[in-house]
Amino acid sequence: MLKHCLSISIALIFSLTLAAQDDLLSMLEDERGDQKTLTEATFKGTRLINGHSIETRKKGVMDFIIAHRFGTIDGGGYELFGLDNATIRIGLEYALNDRLYLGLGRSSFEKTYDSFIKYRIVRQSTGKGNSPFSATWLSSIALKTLKDPEYDLSLANRLANTHSLLLARKLNSSISLQLVPTWVHRNLIRAEDINNDIFALGMGGRVKFSQRLALCVEYYHQFQQLNENTRNSLAIGIDLETGGHVFQLQFTNATSMVPKGFISETTNNFFDGEIHFGFNISRTFQVN
């Protein structure tokens, strides 16, 4: 009798232990399902090609960027397919936190100074409270300082600002897509110009071939034109990661490297060979 009672007691204890373990595992699985997992590296850098991507740097990271565009390749051998001429932009950018990103730069094109503020509103994620896409707001301002004897402009009349909502989704580990509705405003336009305000839609994507190599495409369609000579900006690029550097090679019909410029001032025809070869070099530093 004692043996039977002991056997029954051991069986009950064993059953209760298994049930408790099952309950604990279920709780852990539920907690894992409730956790939010952020999608990382939708794009490799803060730029897709000419335009910004939804990415920002981590808190305390400083980014030094050199962007270079040679002349158009249709200049032929005499111009060494554009290598005899060049436009350059040097920029310095800093992440105040994981969402807020600031930058400033200077371009040789029209001797332009520019600055921007970028804020990550939503990040693509899975789990509790998931988001199917990422959203980042970008506002930038550009000051043209090139002297023009015909137009002695005041500081305010030399300014142009650009505002964009960047929307992106990482479809899988290899493919990412981005849409960029954009508004460009100029305080003053020339007599030959048509619109102070230009609305455009940017479209782009990245196809990743390996851990260090990716192909990028970017296109901005203008719904209004600054004047009759402007064209939509198109760019094709290759991303190469080399340790702490991100090296981007590209072919584009845009000369300017600031938003108000490449979106609304591009005049070259990509399909007529009026293409600039260029590159972006990005070097990051953890300063805080």
Results as ranks from 00 to 15, higher is better:
L6V: 12
L6N: 09
S15V: 04
L18R: 08
Q21V: 05
L25R: 14
S26W: 07
S26V: 13
G33W: 06
T39K: 10
E40T: 13
F43V: 07
G45S: 13
T46F: 02
H52D: 02
I54G: 02
T56F: 00
R57C: 01
K59P: 05
M62T: 06
I73F: 00
D74N: 15
G76N: 06
G77D: 13
Y78E: 11
E79I: 06
F81C: 04
D84N: 15
N85Y: 14
A86F: 14
T87V: 06
I88W: 02
R106F: 04
S107F: 00
F116W: 12
F116Y: 15
I121C: 08
S134K: 01
S139K: 00
S140M: 03
K147D: 13
D152E: 09
D152W: 02
L153H: 05
S154Q: 12
S154R: 10
R158I: 06
A160W: 01
N161V: 03
H163Q: 13
L165A: 13
N172V: 08
Q178S: 08
W183V: 13
W183Q: 10
H185V: 11
N187L: 07
L188I: 01
I189Q: 01
R190Y: 13
N195H: 15
N195A: 09
G204T: 06
R206H: 08
K208S: 07
K208I: 03
F209K: 06
Q211A: 04
R212G: 04
L215W: 14
V217P: 02
Y220L: 08
Q225Y: 07
N232S: 10
N232F: 06
S233C: 09
T242N: 07
S256F: 05
T267F: 05
N268T: 00
F271A: 14
H276M: 01
F279W: 09
N280P: 01
N280K: 04
R283N: 09
T284I: 02
